[in-house]
Structure formats: structure tokens, C-alpha cells
Amino acid sequence: MSSVEEIEDLIGKVSLGDRQAFGRLYDLTNAKLFGVALRVLKDRASAEDVLQETYMKVWRRADRYARGGTSPMTWLITIARNTAIDKLRARRDSDDIDAMADMLPGSGPTPEQVAVAAGEAGRIADCLGELESPRDRAVRGAYLEGLSYAELSEKLGVPLNTVRTWLRRSLISLRECMER
């Protein structure tokens, strides 16, 4: 059984309340989801909290997986990423925005390394590469670091409206590039 099929199978069992399958799903996927939370939050303690919250959602929402129409790993990463970003936003309300300085570029493999490693990832990296920097950085900062428009505006040193226009144009280019 491929790992994609196994993860899908485990999510199906979890939706039926299978605790053993849930433990196995955790073992197979926690490193990736912890990596997501860590990338967004830059802090192990917060990332561990988010990891727990993520799997609690997975336990409760596994029955909704099939409705999403995405691959199982993408579904899990989406939950982890959204949970981490919500935590980041809640924290930002009380934190100094300066703490966010120098977030880009983040840790992890470079787009070039990733492009070599994975075909689909290579495709989006190529398409992102076609975009003019720093518009490319806006999409990457929003997706990989969970930055808001306000944070992107500060980071890239451009007004809020300009950031939104840049990002939307980037998304259109990205969509067209990936549909080619």
C-alpha cells in the first residue's frame, strides 16, 4: 500500500472512531505537520500546542475529509497551517510587530532543492520563479510563513493596497502558468 493510500485508509478508520488508526496516523504524519507549525510560529512550545489542536480537529473532522476533494496529506497540512496561522494572529494581537522581523526567508529546503525533489512542487516553484520578485515573495510569505497583508506590507515595504494588488496578480499568473 502506498503511503498516500495508507493515510487515506487511516483517515477513513479515524472517522469511524478507530483510536489505533488515529495513533498510527499521528506517527506517520506528525513530523510534517509539526514542521508546518514550526515554520509558521518559529517557536517549539507554540508549535507543539498547535500540533495537538490540529490532531484534535483531525479526530473530530475525519468524516469531512472526503468532501474536501484534496489529497490526504494536503488536507492534513491545511488543517495544521490554518491552526498555526490562527494562533499566530492571536499572538500578534498582543505582540510587538518587530518580533516578526527577518522572518523571510524561512528555514527548510530552498525552492530549487524542492524543485529537484518533487515534480508537482517543481512546477509551482517554476511558476513562482516566473513571477517578478518581490511579488513571488508575497505568495511565498503568505503561504509558508502565514503572513497577513499588513505583515507583507511591512516586510516588503509597500502600501497595503499595492501588496494586495501584487499578490492577486501573482495568483492569476500562477494559475495560468500551472494550467499551461
Binding site: 510534517k32 527548510g108 529546503p109 524542492v114 508537482e120 512542487a121 509558508l144
Partner: peptide, 9 residues
């Protein structure tokens, strides 16, 4: 999700 491999495990 094409960027997901950039999240280091």
C-alpha cells in the same frame, strides 16, 4: 500545496 515540500519535517 506544491509548496508543501518546503515545510521541513
Amino acid at each position: 500545496a506544491g509548496m508543501n515540500p518546503e515545510f521541513a519535517e
